[in-house]
Design a protein around this nucleic acid. Sequence first.
RNA 1: GCCGGGAUGGCGGAACUGGCAGACGCAAGGGACUUAAAAUCCCUCGCCCACAAGGCGUGCGGGUUCGAUUCCCGCUCCCGGCACCA
Length: 842
Amino acid sequence: MAIETYYPFQEAEPRWQKAWAERRLFEARIDGKRPKSYILEQFPYPSGKLHMGHVRVYTIGDAMARFRRMQGFDVLHPMGFDAFGLPAENAAIQRGVRPADWTEQCIDNMRGQLNRLGMSYDWEREVVTCRDDYYRWNQWIFIKMWEMGLVERRKAAVNWCPKCQTVLANEQVINGRCWRHEDTDVDVRQLDQWFLKITDYADELLKDLDDKLAAWPNLVTAQQRNWIGRSEGALVKFKVKETGEDLPIFTTRPDTLFGVSFMVMAPEHPKVAELVKGKPNEAEVKNFINKIVLEGREKRTDEAAEKEGCPLGLTAINPVNGREVPIWIANFVLMEYGTGAIMAVPAHDQRDFEFAKKFDIPIHVVIQPEGQTLDSSTMTAAYTEPGVMVNSAQFDGMPSPDAKKAIVTWLAGKKQGEPTVQYRLRDWLISRQRFWGTPIPFIHCEHCGLVPVSVDELPVKLPPDAKFGDGSPLAGVEDFVNVKCSKCGGKARRETDTMDTFFDSSWYYLRYCDAKNATLPFNKEAQAWMPVDLYVGGKEHAILHLLYSRFFTKVLRDMGLIKLDEPFSRLLTQGMVLSEGKDPRTGEVRFFKMSKSIGNVVDPSEIIEQYGADAARMFILFAAPPDKDLEWTTAGVEGIARFMNRLWRYVQNNLHNLRAGMALKSEVKPGEAKNDTDKALLRQIHETTRRVTADLAERQQFNTAISACMELLNALHSWPLHENDVLGYRLAATSMSRLALLISPFAPHLAEEIWAQIGGEGLVAEQPWPAWDEEALKVDEIEIALQVLGKVRGHMMVGVNEDEEAIKQRALADEKVVPFTQGKTIRKVIYVKHKLVNIVAN
RNA sequence: GCCGGGAUGGCGGAACUGGCAGACGCAAGGGACUUAAAAUCCCUCGCCCACAAGGCGUGCGGGUUCGAUUCCCGCUCCCGGCACCA
């Protein structure tokens, strides 16, 4: 008689959450006797409530943390909040609340939601970046970086977002627009700003991508490699004929030096104004510069943009052959890269070619392709491939790749050039003209200039209130701004910029290891826990957060705080959560990233209420592999809820037998199962254990792990549980207790509920992970496929130890096989052990 | 243009080292139970062929192999990143 009930998740889930919290099962301890595992997910910005994307990352991380804990690892699985940032400040402006109050309220709400999902965090180590017990260490690290020479305040052309009312880092500018405001072009402004010299670490950041981050997705390492943008080339000294001064250029093509026919400087190049000062064309040049600068960076760096140029009326001397060439300024040359000046070889560079054609500048061919002769008067595009050197004095006849090195060596001997490496990566602009961030711990003294705040005066606390409106909010807080110089005691002003919030998130993973340390940002415990063994987060941080964190780790290492080169040994970038929606423009119905404008947002709270936290977790893990986008469907969630109920119902309907079996406290051993159905079930129990373990440990492939559990339940359903049969009780109990343990990383509440019902001891969360027995996986006979010419024609049972020759003979005589071999010559018979026989006959 | 990733039934996906393509789930269809519905249970479910036997089938075209979703060569299309970086 079947009992129709539903798993009462509304009541059960909070009950188990309470049980875990009371037993403090998730508090991390490390003693060095057991292996450690640091499982971390990117901490959220406290926006107010969780979205499905959060549920996905945190479920993935939680499943892994629970699995490792049961496996006997010392697990660190912490959570915190990336709490500084503009949205809180904007909320403060719009609602007239303090950013701190608003943020803390959001945090409370989100912490509650995370707990409601059953996440196994060690909240004792919570890190909240907007509290002064955290951000004081930002300031401490910043001052140490200053002492190491890694902090610079300098005037530079910087990106300004008019909506954010602050400057941005290069990494925060996407296609010339603000990363937060896709519709807002950033301006370029000349401002005094604070930079971290990440470029000092460019080489190591690049090298370690290959050497130490093999377990990162290619997508991420490739993007970082691209962003760092290493180019090998040479610095070559050209000379200005009229003034005699040196004008160095950077080139990756020293093999084309004999083909230079002009030189180009960036319009902003500081030497330009000097060079044309008092010259008749001064006004003309200045007009041109103004025009280009006004165009803005986005337009200028568009490859399709028309080449614009203006001659300076000056001459450069090419050091390789003494040839005198005109100097131009042009829109396509950037001040920030190389030396801000280039040599131009129209025959072998497409940009130079277009420029030369437009302004009628000579073209000199110096590299000929194999078996072809280029003619400068008939060329329609630059030839940029390798070839044979011509018109290049003693280098003629040399293959151009060889000439690259030879020419640089020759120039170096004459002190006219040297090999060099350039990076695309720029220093990290970290100052922001906003309130809700870590105050930069410096003062500006009228006498002493820039003075760091002494480390024992930290933290420099944010004032509780500020005047929001035009300009930097902190600048209007007089108590904050007016200070005495700590060096000379004279009048001074506090720095009113705050730090980019990416500073906060660049080292939070270290703080978790030693979250309450009041004398240092972190100490020895960090050495024991680090590196993070699995870091789960979104691809959108491929460059930003993940590059900055790598940089910080190397800096903190060089500061002597930790022995560590890379913070995250393994990275899992989870896909987005999509749901069905209607394209507002085309009306097309398909899956989109959840967004308000499309109206396809699914609220996790509603799902938890309707189906429970476990169903949400299970569906999210089951619907797609973790690194792929996931299509959220109600039917899918119902499917998973159906599975959980089936499991639940099996327990209810067989409660008596399961309890009786559990009470005997002994799992069925391989030799004990006698009949075929029992043997098959026992075998599947162990096979499932093996599959789930491998899927979690090696591949983080939760979808297949869950489907293995489904298969085991299906098998259990069709297995006949005979009443009054002790082996039967025990086998049922073995199956069900295993199932409870195996699904517990995914559906921890249901697992506990089942475990308790069948009479399991203690909590599932503190049980050891089950092992599989190779003996139980063994079978007496296996079905193999019979192929003729690679096509399956039938099947046959073979004994595991059956003689190969006997199998082949039986296969050749098989009634399904014979029609396909009749009248043909048997060329070969291939046997793949325990898989197939393939007969080659024609 | 350069770099990275994809393409498997109506759908999400599986196939781990070159060895039976389509596990598991969703949707769909049929049936049982029910006064009825829901729930549950059973069956079918890649395509062609009325059935069967058979043939075809993992984006396309070649190749290697006894055997290819998997390896190699050449394409197409889609997604993501970078891009006048000298």
